[in-house]
């Protein structure tokens, strides 16, 4: 057992990299669910974002354009879900599952010919002065800008839901769409905007995997991260800061257990391998003892004629 081989700075930096795609996808889905819509298509939107971002990055040489393309790709796929569920009034669960399958197939089709290509690198974003702080600096303040984007998105979503009129309206739509409609709010429009936001976030989460975390394109490369993001929203009781904590816990413990295995730590590998799931669930379940419930209208179809 050789703990000296584990560099804590690199370990914590890897933790942030592992948490970021999960955080982006989950924070987007949180907004969607707060609006009363259950979109199980996160995996499909993530993988679509992964290939859109990768293809555009490779073809333009600009990772930033790739990220924009990923957001648009994820949003475009979510628009399909919005049309099905908000206008055609299709079942949200079935539509979400179909979206995942469609996204996986579409991305495989688009992705042919992109295997084995190295995408252009995202520049590291060193924050002056802060990046020079020993230990903390290299961990928190020398990341690529998507990490900061994910954090500020979380901050923005929290502030919007808690303090803004728009957030209040969004929550009202999620809690009782009929009451919100009676007050004159455009329930469908609000939900469509939320769905598009969720799709864009999922797309960026996917692009983070293909452009930074791996970095390459492989068919099916999200490999279930979208489903973990969905579960995270529920276990975090639909609270943005808990989503951030959950993403860091899951991503961090995953990276930590891999490092502990490599260092030959005397803990059975089976326990290490299951630890990200178990610890994340335990922590978030304990924290959700305040009985924060799901939005009351979550998954329910809104009939404008009512």
């Amino acid at each position: 057992m050789d703990f000296s081989s584990i560099n804590p700075v690199l370990l914590l930096a890897s933790l942030i990299v592992a948490a970021t795609p999960l955080l982006l996808a989950a924070i987007g889905e949180l907004v969607v669910e707060k609006a009363g819509v259950l979109n199980l298509g996160v995996e499909g939107m993530m993988i679509t974002g992964a290939i859109c971002g990768f293809a555009i990055s490779v073809n333009t040489g600009s990772p930033v354009l790739g990220l924009v393309a990923a957001a648009l790709g994820g949003a475009a796929l979510s628009l399909l879900f919005a049309l099905l569920t908000q206008y055609a009034l299709a079942n949200q669960v079935a539509s979400g599952l179909a979206l995942t399958l469609f996204g996986l197939g579409l991305s495989a089709l688009i992705g042919q010919g992109y295997q084995g290509i190295k995408p252009p690198s995202f520049p590291r974003f060193d924050i002056p002065l802060l990046s020079d702080i020993p230990f903390i600096g290299p961990v928190l303040f020398t990341q690529d800008f998507i990490v900061y984007l994910a954090f500020f998105l979380t901050l923005g979503v929290w502030a919007m839901l808690k303090y803004s009129r728009a957030g209040l309206i969004l929550r009202a739509v999620g809690e009782s769409h009929d009451a919100a409609h009676a007050l004159g709010y455009k329930v469908v429009r609000i939900r469509v905007i939320a769905i598009l936001f969720g799709g864009a976030c999922a797309g960026m989460g996917g692009a983070y995997i293909s452009l930074i975390r791996v970095p390459q394109w492989t068919e099916g490369m999200t490999a279930g991260i979208g489903w973990i993001a969905l579960a995270l929203v529920v276990f975090a009781s639909w609270k943005p800061w808990r989503v951030l904590l959950g993403a860091c816990l899951f991503g961090g413990i995953n990276v930590l257990q891999l490092n502990l295995q490599a260092a030959g730590v005397a803990i059975p590998v089976e326990f290490l391998a299951m630890s990200p799931y178990v610890i994340t669930i335990i922590v978030l379940v304990i924290m959700s003892a305040d009985r924060s419930g799901a939005p009351a209208s979550l998954g329910k179809v809104f009939h404008a004629g009512n």
Partner: peptide, 15 residues
């Protein structure tokens, strides 16, 4: 699981 495989490779390389 490409992301996990990449994380594993990075952990080994870092060590």
């Amino acid at each position: 699981d490409p992301a996990k495989e990449a994380d594993a490779a990075k952990a080994l390389i870092e060590q």
